[in-house]
Amino acid sequence: MSFAGVSVVNGGKHCACDTSAVYAGADSGYHLLMVRDYSRTKVELPTGESATTGLFTVGEYDWYIEYYPNGENPDCRDFVSLYVTRNTLYDGEGEEDVEAKFSFSLVDHVEKHKPVYIHGTNKTCTFSGSAPSWGSDKFVRRDVLERSRDLKGDCLTIRCDIMVVCKDPQTEDAPDTLSDMNQHFGHLLQNRVGADVTFEVGGETFAAHRCVLAARSNVFMAQLFGPMKEGTAMSSVIQIKDMEAKVFRALLSFIYTDSLPTMEKDSMEEDDMLEVMDEGREEAAEFEMWLQWLQDLFVAADRYDLQQLKLICEKQLSEHICVSTVTSTLALAEQHCCHGLKEACLKFIQVQSPSCLQAIMATNGWDHVSATYPWVVKELIAKLASNQRK
């Protein structure tokens, strides 16, 4: 992620913003918005009025950020609102649409400062001539912000990450010659035509096809066609324990379509999300649920010897390591013999600051790793010691 400059807002709208002239050039970059004299911005910028940064460049396009300390509209007057806008000429007429992902975060939230986090938590938005702005009208409640450590000395720093989604010129106008076999097999799973085996997982039943499962997984081959085969009778149901229904559903989806599905939310999870105080915390909760689902899917892939799915999950987990989850991911890597994922976790811990190391050691996952895999702790100590010698 390339650095795309910093803007400084001193007080309210009558104070100019100073932007360092940095050209990110790459398809992804981040810009820092430093708000000095935060209390003054609240007084001088009422609801609906904003301070605007200078222009910065990401993906060969110019952008700017709008900061609303009292909310962009009356419905969000108790929140700080943030918007990122693509700068257009001639009121946007004749401008090409730009597909991009973006994310706002406070600088102390280091786990969000990676392009992969944008992949995982934000949809692709179309910045067009008629709709050049996207953002968060309820980025954070002001009372929550003012009680937090993010506001220091009446100053705060906001980071905006932008990732421009590039189109492949070689395939953009090419005829659609890709196989649609995965779609047909996906429909076969959904409509259950010819299904000859039933599984019960987490109180739900799933119908599937023995030959498809056996062709994709050696474990299913042994389970369904080996000497100890299960579910021979059409009326019998194979019980699968220690797995959630949504994880098994994702496992079946990959077997039939050869692609990683999106996580499904159940109604209870959605109700819990509605109780979250602000959008920032809701986003963090969604990320934690997605990461837990991904870890469970990783375990399921290893259990049924689906190496491709296991590699996909391993890559995603490696790219989404953060302070709160690194120890649980490290334990999974050691338990399921994933050397690459283990090394990614150890390297992440190795470069953390002392305060972040303390936060990692305060997690329940650290106690589990220390008690179950003490040799991993020794490896980590050796890596940290090597830092001191450099």
Rank of each mutant, 00 (worst) to 15 (best):
S136Q: 12
C160D: 04
D27C: 13
L294A: 10
E72D: 15
D278M: 11
E269G: 10
G340C: 08
H14V: 11
C166A: 13
S259L: 04
K42G: 11
M163K: 05
A331S: 13
E334S: 11
C17Q: 13
R159N: 08
Q335C: 11
F298A: 03
R40K: 11
Q335D: 07
R389S: 12
K152N: 11
Q190H: 06
S148E: 08
L106V: 05
T262F: 09
D37C: 10
V110Q: 04
T41S: 15
F104E: 02
R40I: 10
L297K: 01
L309A: 01
W293D: 00
S20C: 10
L151T: 10
C337K: 12
L380W: 03
G12S: 05
A51K: 01
A331I: 09
R216K: 08
Y64Q: 11
V164H: 11
T177Q: 09
A371S: 15
E99V: 04
K310Q: 04
I240T: 03
Y38W: 14
Q316E: 01
E99P: 05
Y67W: 02
P175L: 05
V219S: 00
Q350R: 14
R210P: 13
F104I: 06
Q190E: 14
V43Q: 10
F248M: 03
L260G: 00
T53G: 01
R216E: 02
D180P: 06
I65T: 04
G11Q: 05
C76D: 12
E343V: 15
A250R: 00
C356N: 11
E204L: 08
G203P: 09
V84L: 05
L380R: 02
T57H: 07
C17P: 13
I238Q: 04
P374S: 10
Y67A: 00
G12E: 06
W366M: 06
R216D: 00
N387S: 09
T126S: 12
R77F: 08
L309C: 03
S28A: 11
G340I: 12
G365R: 00
V323Q: 12
V201I: 01
R149G: 14
H368K: 14
L106P: 05
T19I: 10
L252S: 02
S259K: 04
G92S: 07
V276Q: 10
S253F: 01
L346R: 03
E283W: 13
A215H: 07
L274M: 13
L33Q: 09
L213P: 09
